[in-house]
């Protein structure tokens, strides 16, 4: 069973736009767009850290859509991944 915790990168700022969100990474000074209306809700959940499965259930998105969004946000370092305390990851 996979237990992962998603944490909003504190170096990222986001703001809502009609297409989803505009994000800025203060470390890389990179500005980019995320075309998903779920991104702000997910970012809010992850502000203090949230279990990946809890976030998925809370957002009510399709598993594929949720995974796609999370992977995209991890790739852009909007979200950071950490193991939940006491949890483990399947390799």
């Amino acid at each position: 069973m996979r237990r992962e915790r998603l944490l909003l990168n504190p170096r990222i700022s986001l703001r809502e736009e009609s297409f989803g969100a505009l994000c800025y990474n203060f470390s890389t000074r990179e500005l980019f767009l995320v075309k998903s209306r779920l991104v702000l809700k997910l970012a809010e959940l992850a502000r203090c850290g949230v279990d990946r499965s809890v976030a998925e259930a809370t957002l009510g998105a399709s598993p594929e859509g949720f995974d796609r969004l999370v992977e995209a946000l991890l790739a852009r370092k909007v979200l950071l991944l950490e193991e939940a305390p006491g949890g483990h990851r399947d390799e």
Partner: peptide, 16 residues
């Protein structure tokens, strides 16, 4: 195209 259209229509605040 849809993103370009959104940008043309203006954002909630300036990018720059």
């Amino acid at each position: 195209d849809s993103l370009a259209a959104a940008l043309r229509a203006g954002l909630t605040a300036p990018i720059c």
